[in-house]
Design a protein around this nucleic acid. Sequence first.
DNA 1: TATTGTGAAATGGTTCACAGCG
DNA 2: CGCTGTGAACCATTTCACAATA
Lengths: 270, 270
Amino acid sequence: MAAQRGQRNGVGDTPPAPTAAEITTPIPRVAEVPAARDRARAIPEAAVARLAVYLRVLSGMQEQGAGTVSSEELAVAAGVNSAKLRKDLSYIGSYGTRGVGYEVVVLIEEIERILGLTRKHSVAVVGIGNLGHALANYGGFPGRGFPVTALFDVDPDLVGVPVGGIPVDHIDDIPRVCAEREVSIGVIATPPPAAQAVCDRLVEAGVQCILNFAPVVLQVPDHVEVRKVDLAVELQVLSFHVARRADDAAQGDGVAGMGPDLQVNGMVVS
Amino acid sequence: MAAQRGQRNGVGDTPPAPTAAEITTPIPRVAEVPAARDRARAIPEAAVARLAVYLRVLSGMQEQGAGTVSSEELAVAAGVNSAKLRKDLSYIGSYGTRGVGYEVVVLIEEIERILGLTRKHSVAVVGIGNLGHALANYGGFPGRGFPVTALFDVDPDLVGVPVGGIPVDHIDDIPRVCAEREVSIGVIATPPPAAQAVCDRLVEAGVQCILNFAPVVLQVPDHVEVRKVDLAVELQVLSFHVARRADDAAQGDGVAGMGPDLQVNGMVVS
DNA sequence: TATTGTGAAATGGTTCACAGCG
DNA sequence: CGCTGTGAACCATTTCACAATA
């Protein structure tokens, strides 16, 4: 097992094969549920991520007593343009009122439903080093809904010790413990060399969604969803921008100042 | 100040305005430098992130004594398809040999150059909580090149205490310290409410690249580059997939015999 | 011959702009 | 009248497929 496959996210990145296509209901089937679930398949991954952002912004607005928002307001708060926001919302249905806007409560409800946040998702963290520790201590990640119910490590000194209230189990127990606690999301925070093996065990245990913090390209079967958070990549992308900026400055000077002659390190290529 | 603007990355997301377009040299100008720097501007952001991944894979290969790689080998190891890989590499130049492949050393060199990794990028971490601690202890992030040279927090009990070898300074000293130590990348690991204020100070201090771990949409001027790592969003996107999967199973059942015991944790035959 | 480098086609995502509607 | 919802235009990125070539 363990077919090769790139992981989503990180930055751009679009699924290798068919992911968010319109392969919805092959059979006409009698129009049933609001099609909300059929619809889900058609939402572009990028839009899904933005919906999560809108949800957070909306929650903030709700706390401040807002009853309705216009696409423009919400868009500004979320840092996107309003057309994109409306298109994103249209993927989940038509919950706005023309001439008025959206009811904050309704939107929150609908986005939560589409994102599957009405259900609890048990999370297991593997690798209780600096980062794993930090993650475990979040104690039920982002505003509940993602309770951390299992921790794993290889270090015998850690096994048995409770971190953030949960005792650390040995990596060999991943299959058993994950099954028992119905873990649906596995978080990998191990050193790079251990990541693939840990991933394999999680998959064995039936975990279908993995969040990978290890700087490693995981190979997983097709039915497993991997998202990665890659610090090195993030920094290097920023580094690229620093470099580009520096070049711009250097070049820009030339343009503004001197005339047509400018071949510092001449050498003609294509 | 502080114009509104969405931040890149996270997942899909494409720059609001013109970012990686082909707006290169507006004036024909005499063909000069290897165009390496002009080229930089034309590299799609998504490709930049992947280059960082290729770089890591290549380093691993180099350590194992590989002298050359074919696009196919490298692609598999990086989890992308070979056409994409070749296209990505073509953005930085033509360093391969037809019929043979690429010299590992050469590629490493060129990618490092494009990503600006030949220069050191001083990093400041703001917010020394669980996560900030973990980050500070990385001690010179991913394989050097990104030395952490400054730490900040508001907590008076923390100020002055060294973490990972670097003494924590007070947030009010961001401008001075960042200038002194020539910080080029700021990492925000504060609680959400503090993030925007911290961001503003970093910008004031001249920091042009920010990596934001706080679940907040930062508003920054156009010349500042923000990338974000958003745990909540990542988990919620995974949650979406769990939900989609569940629906698939429910719907699919009607077709593919729901006869036998369909297990608890997935493990679909497929 | 094997593999790169790249036009051109295909796909997917974003933005425009306006019809539709409360 | 104002704002949503969306078809259609536009743009970026990915993939195909093959000519170029060491």
